[in-house]
Simulated scan of single mutants.
Amino acid sequence: MDSKDDTQHDPVAEQPAHLSLFDDRSAAESDGSGPAEPAGAGRRRRTRRVLLWALVALLVVLGSGVGALYWTANHYASSVQRIPNAFPTLPESAQPQAVPHSGMTFLLVGLDARSDVPTTGSEAKGPAWKEGAARSDTMMLMHIAADRRSVSVVSIARDTWVDIPGHGQAKINAAYSWGGPALMVQTVQNLTDIRIDHVAVIDWDGFRSLTDAVGGVDITIPKTIEAVGGARHWDAGTQHMDGDTALQYVRERHGLPNGDLDRTKRQQNFLRALMKQTMNSGTLSSPTRLGGLLQSVGDVVSVDDKLSNSDLYDLAWSMRSLRVGDVSFMNAPFGGFATIDGQSAVKLDRQAAAPLWEAMRNDRMSEYLAAHRTSGDVLGDSVR
């Protein structure tokens, strides 16, 4: 979908579209929406963009690589910034009921801009949210099974049209702009009837070093993709991508038949390749490479302040036997594109989504995926 269509008549369109992680930069800069950035701001700050996949890598790497060295794990876990007030302050009766022994569900939020900008002359970081400062660019529900033998990641399209508490109907990515992590959690809980256990906001800036720390990743392009507009040409075949090249791969949507939906699958395909490379490249057995990777992850991830270092370590240790094939990826069932109030929007197929949310709520994702393995929503071996 064109970035101009995304912001036309959008109540939060004044946000700086050129900072969007996955939007095409040339198209966003021609949009003209939003106030101009203060002079010199680019020099004073490091632009913070986002990578939803780093939390999965953190859990796998911590569990696989440093299980015997608790103090090392604690050191790197301490580098993960904590987010205060990440959950809605609602009575239990107004939230989905938690299902005992049903695993753990994270809401992974990637932003088009972060407000934790270092102040002049200081590296101190501020909150991960400031009203109106950013919209969530990507959202994923990551369900970790109670037996810790499988992980399911479900992407929710950023333009999904939903009810946002206190604001009426809008694209789901507006929830973060209007009310931060707490309103985003409430919106997703209302949509899915799944109780969110933890929140992670993922910072983009560490992406290149995170990819390069494992020696790059191998991504297979099944069919040659011709250059379209500002998008690059991709030759068919397996390509070894460093951080810069992988960034181009996950950002592009031009030339992809289903636009943002195909781009989401590219993001998931990249995460799968990153996990595979992390486990197979010798990174986990090399103190130098492992230290560099963990430091990069710590620079990338922020989590809610209810997730302590020991909680993070214990969770990672419990997942130490997890392998790439145990992690499944899919998009929330797609119900079609629409133009609503002048905005390009994505419709969720709520009837098809109902059994998915029920399976995640009750820790039956393995059964759900077994029954829907051939669905176009589930990430397959071949990704455009």
Rank of each mutant, 00 (worst) to 15 (best):
A94H: 04
S302D: 15
S155M: 08
G121D: 12
A28I: 06
T339A: 08
Q15M: 13
H101T: 05
D304G: 07
H233T: 04
G298H: 09
V80I: 15
G32W: 11
F337T: 14
P96A: 08
A246D: 10
A134Q: 02
L294G: 05
N173M: 11
L55I: 01
M1A: 14
A128M: 13
V214W: 12
D2P: 01
M365A: 12
M142K: 12
F334K: 10
A98N: 07
V217F: 07
M1Q: 10
H233F: 11
V151W: 10
A273L: 07
T120R: 14
A345W: 04
D24V: 12
D349E: 03
A182C: 06
Y249L: 02
W357H: 07
Q8M: 11
G237N: 09
A146W: 05
L256S: 03
H18Q: 15
T160Y: 01
F337C: 03
G168F: 13
M360C: 04
R158F: 08
L108Y: 02
Y368R: 11
N74Y: 06
A133W: 14
N85L: 05
R49E: 00
G342D: 13
V61W: 02
G34E: 02
S344G: 13
L141D: 05
F22A: 13
A354G: 06
A68R: 14
G230W: 03
D116S: 07
R149H: 12
G243C: 08
F334L: 09
R135G: 01
I196D: 08
G121P: 06
S382L: 14
E29W: 09
L90T: 06
V80S: 01
R135M: 06
T72Y: 12
V301P: 03
T119V: 10
R320F: 03
D304Y: 06
Q15V: 14
G335S: 05
